[in-house]
Design a protein around this nucleic acid. Sequence first.
DNA 1: CAGTGGTCTAGACCACCCT
DNA 2: GGGTGGTCTAGACCACTGG
Lengths: 263, 263
Amino acid sequence: MSPTVNPSSKQAQEKAAQAHGVDKANPLPAYAQLAQLLRGRISSGEYPPGSRLPAESSLAQSFGVSAMTARQAVGVLAEEGLVKRVQGSGTFVRKVGVVASNFGLDALGAVLANPDQLTVRIIKAQVQRAEGEAQEVLELPRGEAMILVERVILFEDKPFTLHVSQTGFDPASPTVESMLDTAVLTSLIFQEGYSNFKKGELRLLPVVLGQREAEMLELEPGRSAFKLEHLFYGFDDRPAAFGWFIVAPEKMPLVSRVGVWDE
Amino acid sequence: MSPTVNPSSKQAQEKAAQAHGVDKANPLPAYAQLAQLLRGRISSGEYPPGSRLPAESSLAQSFGVSAMTARQAVGVLAEEGLVKRVQGSGTFVRKVGVVASNFGLDALGAVLANPDQLTVRIIKAQVQRAEGEAQEVLELPRGEAMILVERVILFEDKPFTLHVSQTGFDPASPTVESMLDTAVLTSLIFQEGYSNFKKGELRLLPVVLGQREAEMLELEPGRSAFKLEHLFYGFDDRPAAFGWFIVAPEKMPLVSRVGVWDE
DNA sequence: CAGTGGTCTAGACCACCCT
DNA sequence: GGGTGGTCTAGACCACTGG
């Protein structure tokens, strides 16, 4: 007898499912269990790279779940880039490929997630005439007033990144004062609070540290670092803020894993 | 007009919703239509950053689709990082955030997708004793034989990237000969064909070009470039191939968009 | 407690691919 | 034509959140 006295209505065909691996008593959702099981078969070579997975309907029947659940399980692997769905043909195991990888800025976020250990040192905050790259990308008339702010963000009292930002000087816009606010920085990094921006574009570049930058970050001039450019647009779809972060690669490791990493 | 006797407090919204509702004659799937519609409301400020979206069940009713379809639509926006689901609470519009972004190597893939216009120039291919970083990450005994291959990949007859790779010298392994094969390179980049590797780890770094590297790539020494390190593991879970690509940032732009980019 | 997202079922029809 | 993934429905129960 089953010790479970759950008055739930349907538990008819659970036995077949349990025999094949999906355990409904397991708190892990069925689709995740099935995904892990498939991952194991790929990892072990049972489903070698390039081979076709059983059809979703077949998986559903084999493991005693509905087609939607099986589909969801395959969807997990597809999102991981482990398999590739081809309509009308099947789902195929991918090989390890470099282009499958994505580099995220989680490391940056992880550090900045501790506002207690962050200090912001304003290096420069001034109004100046628009010129050069900033004037161009912000679509400002040449010579128009523009705000420039340079800050060094310290993490645990050690320089972490140098942030340079430039915005047009429009007294009617809340951007002006907010650019001087340190809070806007962390809220820019995360997706919290309220935003003056509708969208943004980021560009990652390698740079060689100049004398001045190196000093502010307490690094050796001439060595390489990441430059993370950002251009944000307001809700009127006009460019509103342009700038960049300079970060040493040790502070912001960009790693990516591809293929089967079971553990 | 049919008399609506629904005593709901959101009548106005619902009518507007059905007016711009989901068109089943449209070849675009219903979930995509709904996602686009929600995207527009976020973009226009109707659902400002930080606000809560209508419940999925409410969306389903308003637009005359099933709950699963509405859920799928919200899922699209969630995957785009535009909204954030919070169980038991609701789905909230995110603000534009830097950490939401991911940098992909699509540009690299796009170039290498044309094998006709690719030439591979072998610079160096030799057996040498394992030492230094390669000996370490490949977990080889010090002094063990190791294969080193250096190639310059040319795209449209102009240097595109320098690739250095190192593998242990195991005559029983197919890796030995395949490392000298140019085909393995493109198959390593994409997820095509068969793979000797189970998984891989990639690391993106900024570097300063040395004299020799710069010459091979026909660039100025001392300028910055990307270094894409890779470490691949065989199906026995042991590190099998270590190396890196050197690419100029112009050849491999790493851009990322966050927020609402309707167009 | 009521409302929300998270999961799941057992069907269904379609567009597409391959033989 | 038969199999595959892609989409969709109309329900259901659960875990979690908040007042």
